[in-house]
Nucleic acid binder design. Structure first.
Lengths: 213, 213
DNA sequence: GCTCACATGTGCACAACGTACACATATCAG
DNA sequence: CTGATATGTGTACGTTGTGCACATGTGAGC
């Protein structure tokens, strides 16, 4: 019998009320502390103040919980991108489109550096192109990270910054470069680099994408 | 008591002889079957025909075994790159340098697609820039994947294909793009793409790097 | 060649994890 | 008010990583 001293405010009734949501939140916390492998079903139930078995009323298995946590983490990535985009001053439409595109990269990588565990979790689980547009993974504007990138690229074409014939599949090229840098930062060989050097690399990778697309 | 029917040829003596090597090989097999998380210490010892505890005479813990397996897998990546480079016909030095550079990317990505489990394992563990040049991770020519890339970029500069002022940190830019595409292929949203489309993306990402560096 | 120290493998134990199943209880429809 | 259903509990099992006492080959020095 737990004493209700956990994070949540001491369940009063036998029922929890919103256990599914609570488990996902606990999972996101765990992801932040230790990445996807730290999303441990028993620990999540422990933090919520519930028996391990209770989780199985809301998730088929640990992987299902992890998938849900992954979606939540992707929504956080979308939020980071939106935050960077929101900071762009209102200049002419062309320059603004260019900066919105770059903000997709900087927001993505800023989140990867600030929240490595959650970032890894966001892209750890089973996700195909279908689920990359699932609404559970969207930020405040209702767009997933992938969709934010797509929109930014479309705007580049509209503003004449990207030739239309180069547009197809451009999201995958841009995504590869930025995502790869994130991986090298987080548990790759660039982990130990001092922060200013990382910032320089971020700029240069985005330069490369902008020039190479 | 195992009957010695495993992979290895029925240990005759109490001593194994080369248990460390055998455990790493079993680990590489497991990595090929299910990625880094499939590198399970007990299963490795089982396949070798030995008690779980025996592994602790050669590795501090599971992570140490995984690190060794990771190094072996990186050597396999280096081998794949070398194989692609060896297939380049002898033309003029300039074109040859360009193709050797591209072969780093194609070999890297070919291995990622052919051996996703081992590829993931190769870059799953703790590795900084020091260990990226460790000889345990080298291929037949004695160079790690990272070193093969470095050499290829140096040759680009020598042949005048890359301005010297763009050379610094270029390995990280190129690596990011190619590594990112590999991640998107393996457990990212591009997993389900048909193979020809993947091949096209590989070409286009390397084009982007060549043009954007 | 014998002996003893040391390296290496065995056996057993424990805690943690994912998960299954029978049981208990709160909530809501009628 | 009553019963069906949703949701949480308790217990149990198999698997994993890992520590520790013990056993047994192997080689160094006499």
């Amino acid at each position: 019998m737990t004493t209700g001293l956990g994070n949540s405010p001491a369940r009063t009734s036998y029922r929890h009320g919103d256990l599914r949501r609570a488990l996902i939140e606990a999972g996101v916390d765990l992801a932040g502390e230790g990445g996807p492998s730290a999303v441990v079903l028993r620990e999540a139930t422990r933090r919520v103040g519930v028996t391990p078995s209770a989780a199985y009323r809301h998730f088929a298995d640990r992987q299902a919980l992890l998938d849900a946590v992954c979606s939540s983490c992707q929504a956080l990535v979308a939020g980071a991108i939106e935050a960077d985009q929101a900071r762009i001053p209102a200049t002419d439409a062309t320059e603004s489109a260019r900066l919105r595109f770059r903000a997709v990269g900087t927001g993505y990588l800023r989140f990867a550096l600030e929240e490595p565990g959650r970032f890894q979790t966001a892209f750890s689980a089973s996700s195909d192109l279908e689920s990359a547009t699932s609404s559970a993974r969207a930020g405040e504007r209702g767009l997933t990270p992938f969709q934010l990138l797509t929109v930014a690229l479309d705007d580049l074409v509209t503003e004449g910054l990207l030739p239309a014939e180069r547009r197809p599949a451009a999201e995958f090229l841009a995504w590869s470069a930025v995502h790869g840098l994130a991986e090298l930062f987080i548990d790759g060989p660039l982990r130990a680099l001092p922060d200013p050097v990382k910032q320089t690399l971020i700029t240069r990778v985005i330069d490369m994408v902008e020039q190479g697309l």
